[in-house]
Design a protein around this nucleic acid. Structure first.
Lengths: 325, 325
DNA sequence: AAAATTAATAACAACGTTGTTATTTTTATG
DNA sequence: CATAAAAATAACAACGTTGTTATTAATTTT
């Protein structure tokens, strides 16, 4: 049997309500008794009973994260970071890999205080009176829950501008396009707009998928473009990894012969063959933002809003100025 | 406010204890009243309060799964399958990606009935009076909790035997070796033993890592072996994928010029460029086994044992008989 | 049709907390 | 040094269930 506040009370010769207050660090109990109770509690190995607490307080201080497509690894780093971000709050996080519906059922059963949903599509999530925050493409629809999204357009603009400033004029984009993946589409469109804005002609290479090898293969096409690009923007960590490898194998120096900048701002960019310059909302920042959003929504019933986070560019060794041949 | 059994009781003109019994389908309540109560409950949208139930019953019917290294995707399919396997039980599953310690804390707070731990190393997990089952390399140590493991040795033996029966005599193994990854080591050793047993000379190619590209690169080495192998055993899904692609690119027909068999028995093997013959414990089976193990351990205090599951070979189109040149 | 038996329902005490109200103890005040 | 005020502690009713025990209603049995 587990030890309860009543056991502590007996041991410490106080009433159990005093124990409760002491454990919650209430100012209503004298410092010395508080200390004694705390000591006794520790000695007895007291562990509060969440169910009991929850029953009276109607709060769990737990947030559920719904991640239905676990097998697409892209988000793993984000999950890890969110999990970490929760550590400095009074909330803890649990994860479900079930379908959104099933997961929501489970979380409702648990009476989590809030949920984070990785929204794959622009499809609406039925909100069942548990505060909810979505991470994903915001689109243009009305919202009934906050959506955290990245400003992909701005990201591409920054990337292009950065390369332009380094002297690059032929900048190619490599990534998935013309599918119904709203996120990928936003990226290409962002690139196209940015190029237009700055007065350059776009040159994009469509890949077949989102994997490493798709980037690896795309380099052949890139090198056959009319004007050979001096810089490439890879649409994701995996894609860019493949591009980098292929360039190396073809004897093209990065960044001397060709500069490479990758979308996705994750720490892993540091540890590629050549540390990669990248653009995107840093994951830790993103995670922090998401966590804050749920907590705020839980605690203050705030209005749902779409937040487009600003990307930042992290300069590493895969980019450099155009060298005169 | 949520509707409780007391609300239902009022509405149905019975006592709340009768409602409780009716909802739990007790034989103590008359069929007609039971039906009425059930109907009223449904109409009112009743959702049982887990915390209250838990408080009196001291059971949550929830199992926690600890998966600290989420970023290594290999296990994702297994997680998905475990999650699915729980659906047909009365338990549900939640997931934590925290470190084993932190996750165990959270789960203890939640008072889960049991835990599944993906044990990375052979390191011991401190068992804190919550029934625990580990999935991972069993090693030779004493156990205080059940460990579910695959019989890697037998797997390799089956694979080699299968290829032998098809006429292959030069069978190469491609995979990570000589690192401190216990699982990978077991695989190579299994291969070596199997070859020896059947009287063939082993030819293995060590990769640098566990990724797709490591397999892709390894093919060059394979083809430079003294006796060119007629069959390759790839050590994992990713590795084998790389091997397959490289063979294709080099114009080597699979399985006509060279047979390929992969470790890992997951459904994805069906959808590679050429559907792959594979060896291993089928994930769904593995998942089922793990789930059964926790449940048994929760419900019957059974003795901890190491269970080595038998792998099975799934024949697809990447393997065939040796063709006389 | 009264007594005994069985079936159906109701009452109520748990479970381990929190938060409010009541009581006691201590300290300050005239 | 009584008395009022403040501080500390204790008592107790929630919270929404389950499971046990008590009560009432419906059947048998004689």
């Amino acid at each position: 049997m587990n030890v309860t506040i009543k056991d502590i009370a007996k041991e410490a010769n106080v009433s159990y309500s005093t124990v409760s207050k002491a454990l919650n660090n209430s100012p209503l109990v004298k410092e010395v008794t508080k200390q004694k109770i705390l000591r006794v509690a520790k000695e007895m190995g007291y562990e509060p009973n969440l169910a009991a607490k929850q029953l009276v307080r109607k709060k769990t201080e737990v947030v559920g994260l719904i991640w239905p497509t676990i097998e697409r690894i892209v988000l793993a780093t984000l999950v890890t970071n969110i999990s970490k971000a929760f550590e400095s709050t009074r909330y803890s996080m649990i994860l479900s890999v079930d379908s959104t519906d099933t997961a929501m059922e489970t979380f409702k059963k648990f009476q989590v205080d809030g949920m984070i949903v990785f929204a794959e599509s622009e499809q609406m999530i039925p909100e069942e009176n548990i505060p909810l925050v979505a991470y994903g493409v915001s689109g243009k629809r009305e919202v009934t829950y906050p959506i955290i999204d990245a400003n992909h357009e701005q990201a591409m603009e920054k990337a292009v501008q950065y390369l332009y400033d380094l002297g690059h004029r032929n900048i190619a984009y490599v990534g998935l396009m013309n599918t119904d993946d709203a996120l990928q589409n936003e990226k290409v469109e962002g690139y196209q707009k940015a190029m237009k804005k700055i007065g350059l002609t776009e040159q994009s290479i469509a890949t077949n998928g989102l994997d490493w090898f798709d980037g690896y293969l795309a380099v052949d096409d890139v090198l056959q473009l009319g004007k050979r690009p001096t810089a490439i923007i890879g649409s994701s960590y995996d894609i860019s990894g493949g591009i980098l490898r292929s360039l190396q194998e073809k004897g093209l120096g990065v960044p001397d012969d060709i500069s490479l900048i990758s979308y996705d701002n994750i720490p892993q960019m540091e540890t590629t063959e050549i540390p990669m310059t990248c653009i995107g909302v840093p994951v830790d920042e993103l995670a922090e933002e998401i966590v804050q959003a749920v907590i705020q929504r839980i605690e203050s019933e705030e209005q749902p809003v779409v937040r487009k986070l600003n990307p930042s560019l992290t300069e590493r060794q895969s980019t450099g100025p155009v060298l005169e041949g």
